[in-house]
Design a protein around this nucleic acid. Structure first.
Lengths: 269, 269
DNA sequence: AAATAAAACGAACGCTCGTTCTATTTTTGT
DNA sequence: ACAAAAATAGAACGAGCGTTCGTTTTATTT
């Protein structure tokens, strides 16, 4: 009996089954080929993980509508916030009727919960990947890169969760804080392991860990800082894949370099 | 004629007149004695700078009510967000009637505009102060300290502006971005001056400047990261002055140390 | 103490919100 | 091609929103 209850909750927490083959971090392009949370697969994951509340049964319809709903949500609420976005705005933006929208959600808040769930899942994938690396320095580098890649691909999702956490039930608000703390704890543990191994030197591992996390957040929260954007015909920002690759790489290098200085073991290196 | 129009706008941008005597940064305690934006003076400034929209004429009443309104706004919207805070919530929390509230504001949005104005003013004071320091390193240190002190004292204001920017008209949204960019530009200029003078060494002044700004933001955005808080009888967090002094100092030291490493000229130091 | 001005009150208004519900259209299975 | 099932449309509902305004209370002046 208890195992059935566990199973019911289980589909919300399992990250492992999503990603049997390891994600390839050698470049953003190859990341895109191996990261599971994107395109149709991404919205199918949303559908699978919220099957109980979604009235639409056929995956074909649900997946297409979830994509419309979530994309429109990101577009509208990036400017005015989730609370100010009415479901009539959403109806207009998606071209769907109220009825159609309400067959993918049971209430407005569900949209925010779906986003939170996916971001949590993505972060689980990052955490999971960090275990695979060889040396400590490599594992730090890999974690940073993975985070940059994932939060670039899922930028609207990460951005939304950060700014709309307060539209969530308080339990989920606490959970969001915990995700950030877990991120810091993860880097702190890696750094301390490196210090132990004589690979790094620092007196304040937590400060360095915190700086890394905060700089990673900066990347998806303030794209206007680093990205010079071109605007397409729909009035949206848009970059060529090659340009994105280059931008990420530049930012990645600047974080790596910064961390390297903060953790340098000797002055002659 | 044009000069009169200029004058009308002028009271929203002048920071100089507020602060003839320089702010004392030797400790948080002495900062509190010299920083103008606090206590009754703070709300009187709000009153003076928004006299056109405030119906209440006597400063005595307006100042008291503004304090109630803004404090309640911070309290309520820190949990649920500005949009979800209804004016009936505000009425309940302040003990004021709708009519009383509406004699201090002309519309809900005004509350957010007042906050934005004060934060902008506070940032102007910081910028202004940076000019006074001797060496470049001292001016960087002073700017960081000033920012930490001001954003501790005005934490709810800074926090509110960061998370509620999207409740503002778009012109003010752009302005908020500009404030952040100005902050980065300020530190970048200081760093570049230091490099010029041979005091610092770095190949990426902007990255370092950005890291400083982001860490300063972290201080007022995520107090739960660094502060171990005690809870008073009203259920609010509360620290002794001495504890605050110590917390700020610790965080200040960790930023300074981090920046020092990033800007070190040689490896033997 | 009376007269006047300012401030506070709170019910009422019009509107928009999230949500529901039934009729209609589209898809599916045979 | 047709019946059953699923998905969509959009009008309708009640709650709650920001805001207004006539009245009452409080403060100030005469």
């Amino acid at each position: 009996m208890t195992s059935m209850i566990d199973l019911k909750e289980c589909d919300k927490t399992d990250a492992s089954e999503l990603c049997e083959s390891p994600v390839d971090l050698s470049s953003f392009t190859s990341f895109l080929e191996s990261f599971p949370l994107q395109g149709e697969q991404l919205y199918r994951t949303v559908f699978d993980r919220h099957a109980e509340i979604i009235q639409t049964q056929k995956a074909r319809f649900a997946v297409a509508n979830l994509e419309k709903i979530l994309s429109a949500t990101f577009e509208v609420s990036a400017v005015s916030g989730f609370d100010r976005m009415s479901l009539r705005d959403l109806s207009r933006q998606t071209g769907m009727s109220m009825g159609a929208i309400y067959s993918c959600i049971s209430k407005k808040e569900d949209i925010a919960l779906m986003v939170a769930d996916i971001v949590r899942l993505s972060n689980d994938l990052i955490q999971q990947h960090a275990m695979l690396a060889g040396s400590t320095w490599q594992s730090v580098e890999q974690s940073i890169k993975f985070h940059l890649y994932a939060s670039t691909l899922l930028q609207p999702w990460y951005f939304f969760l950060y700014f709309e956490t307060r539209s969530l039930p308080q339990a989920q608000q606490e959970e969001s804080k915990q995700i950030e703390l877990d991120g810091i704890n993860g880097f702190e543990a890696q750094i301390l392991a490196g210090v132990e191994a004589g690979e790094f030197a620092t007196e304040n591992a937590r400060t360095v860990a915190n700086a890394i996390v905060v700089l990673l957040e900066d990347w998806y929260l303030k794209p206007w800082k680093t990205k010079s954007l071109s605007i397409n015909k729909e009035g949206r920002y848009e970059l060529q894949l090659g340009e994105i690759e280059e931008k990420i790489n530049t930012y990645n290098q600047s974080i790596i370099e910064l961390v390297r200085k903060l953790l340098a073991t000797d002055r002659s290196e």
